[in-house]
């Protein structure tokens, strides 16, 4: 029965837009289930690195320890190393305590406010033991936050004079299914591309004004009007 008909498809991919933090592509000759599976995997099953264990040495800030630990966990880290890393639960080198170099990255944070101005402790203050795993830098991402010079990463906590925060954090590999902090994507979505047919004959009968109103009726501005031919397209 080896010769049974193969139902394999050969999907086509076309990238429409590709930025550091944004990608948009077309997927053709396959169906929604594949696209959806792709979406689901991107959200939940691609491993990344995120802070998972926090040991707090000193915390005299207004936020409590769990609060800060939770915030640290949600800081995105560059995760190129994720594939070569081990899940700490499968790690043989450290008997599962998840603190060896194969399955973890150590971070340190030391901040103390000494003057009257409030000190923002941000993701930039996190010092990594591994230069490949660092908090994601958004300042040059061109995502609207640019040319903001004092954009210093993600605020963890604000310190007032005399307050101090000192901690050790361990980042581990994980997947989005376990916790959203390991989800690599902010959002993933897809849509069927709409095919819009314009009844050209009818369109011809419309006046320019009516045409513009047709164009304006779309909230997302799908149509344009050709200034020369006065054709809607």
């Amino acid at each position: 029965m080896e010769g049974a008909a193969s139902y394999q498809r050969f999907p086509k991919v076309k990238i429409r837009e590709l930025k550091d933090d944004y990608a948009k592509f077309e997927l053709r000759e396959t169906d929604a289930s594949v696209a959806n599976a792709l979406r689901r995997v991107m959200i939940a099953e691609v491993p990344t690195i995120a802070i998972d264990l926090v040991e707090i040495e000193v915390n005299s800030s207004v936020l409590n320890d769990e609060f800060i630990a939770h915030r640290l966990g949600l800081i995105p880290l560059t995760s190129e190393r994720a594939m070569s890393m081990r899940f700490s639960r499968d790690c043989d080198a450290c008997d599962g305590d998840g603190q060896c170099e194969f399955c973890s990255v150590e971070f340190h944070l030391r901040a103390k406010c000494i003057n009257d101005q409030t000190l923002d402790v941000t993701s930039k203050d996190l010092y990594s033991s591994d230069h490949t795993v660092v908090p994601v830098d958004f300042s040059d991402s061109g995502s609207g936050f640019e040319n903001n010079e004092d954009q210093r990463g993600i605020t963890i906590v604000k310190l007032r004079k005399g307050q101090e925060l000192r901690l050790r954090a361990i980042a581990r590999k994980g997947i989005g299914k376990d916790h959203a902090k390991w989800s690599p994507a902010a959002t993933v979505t897809f849509m069927y591309e709409p095919e819009i047919h314009i009844n050209e004959e009818m369109m011809e009968t419309l006046s320019l004004e009516e045409k513009t109103s047709v164009v304006d009726s779309s909230p997302t501005k799908v149509f344009g009007i050709n200034p020369h031919t006065q054709q809607v397209g």
Partner: peptide
Amino acid sequence: LYSGITGMP
């Protein structure tokens, strides 16, 4: 909306 399970609308 699309169903997150099947990907169908």
